[in-house]
């Protein structure tokens, strides 16, 4: 105890000395230089900014500062959206598009993950397939649309195929990239415990690649939404993409903005769903 007290007294005396000597050199705190460059969460900033922008936009439109040829007023776009709800057409468009998105994306992702795993696990497959993936990935799928129409018809086939192909390639790349980055030591650990090949793939490789696969999903879902408009260029009566294209052809800019807003909402929803999936599947991460 006495030792502790003595220890404490030492610095206290030193401070007192300093204060006594103040007239010699002024004592001031060390300037703080550690601020900034840190992300703090600001929940409502985006929402606030969005509302402010829409209000400014509405004012601009109302006063004629923004020509109604250049942009419809947000209230007009909202009116177009309200019409969609009133007539119930929104559900027709949404269900047609969701059907294409869900089938195209899930089948594309399933095949993509499977092929990606095969590429990552079997060097013979990698040697054979990965050059094709690299060669075909950058081709805009819209360019292949005429071929898709011949192969899959102008019905749902070509639309789903456009999305499917658009989703497939980034998924393959994300998957085998993810597997390549799985900690080799973990695989060696599995082998050292005599785990079967299948167990190592199922319990070590796939969960290890999962973060990369999920961020691949995030990208491929956006690609799927981007391709929706292209997919619905041909022979689509209903669908958000078809609605946007029709609005463009009719120069109905209010409907155009309403359609684009629907795509944005779709994108936000999908992003949110994937975040939820990530949070649950990767709950082992910090």
């Amino acid at each position: 105890m006495s030792l502790d007290a003595a220890d404490l007294e030492q610095p206290r005396r030193a401070t007192a000395d300093l204060q006594q000597n103040r007239h010699v050199a002024a004592v001031k705190p060390v300037p703080f230089r550690g601020g900034g460059f840190v992300h703090t969460r600001h929940r409502f900033v985006a929402l606030f900014l969005f509302v402010v922008l829409v209000i400014l936009w509405e004012i601009g439109s109302q006063t004629g500062f923004i020509s109604n040829i250049a942009l419809p007023a947000p209230s007009e776009a909202a009116g177009a959206m309200a019409d969609l709800f009133e007539t119930g057409m929104i559900w027709k468009h949404l269900s047609a598009s969701l059907y294409r998105l869900v089938i195209g994306w899930s089948v594309g992702s399933l095949i993509g993950v499977t092929v990606g795993l095969a590429v990552a696990l079997f060097s013979i497959v990698r040697a054979g397939v990965s050059p094709f993936v690299s060669a075909l990935f950058p081709i805009p799928k819209i360019a292949l649309l005429p071929l898709f129409i011949i192969w899959f018809g102008i019905g749902e086939g070509s639309k789903v195929a456009t999305i499917l192909f658009g989703v497939f390639f980034p998924t393959v790349i994300a998957t085998y990239g993810g597997v390549d980055n799985v900690d080799r030591n973990l695989i060696r650990m599995g082998q050292s415990f005599g785990l079967s090949w299948l167990s190592i793939v199922r319990k070590i490789i796939i969960p290890g690649a999962l973060p990369a696969i999920l961020s691949g999903f995030r990208i491929s879902a956006s690609i799927a939404i981007i391709l929706l408009v292209a997919a619905e260029m041909i022979g689509a009566e209903f669908g958000i993409g078809a609605y946007i294209l029709m609005a463009g052809a009719l120069f109905a800019t209010d409907q155009l903005i309403a359609g684009v807003a629907m795509l944005s909402v779709l994108g936000l929803t999908v992003g949110w769903l994937i975040s939820r999936a990530e949070r649950w599947l990767l709950r082992w991460r910090a």
């Binding site: 129409i149 022979g235 078809a242």
Partner: peptide, 8 residues
Amino acid sequence: TPMQKVPA
């Protein structure tokens, strides 16, 4: 059935 372009 919208096809966007005459050739299509």
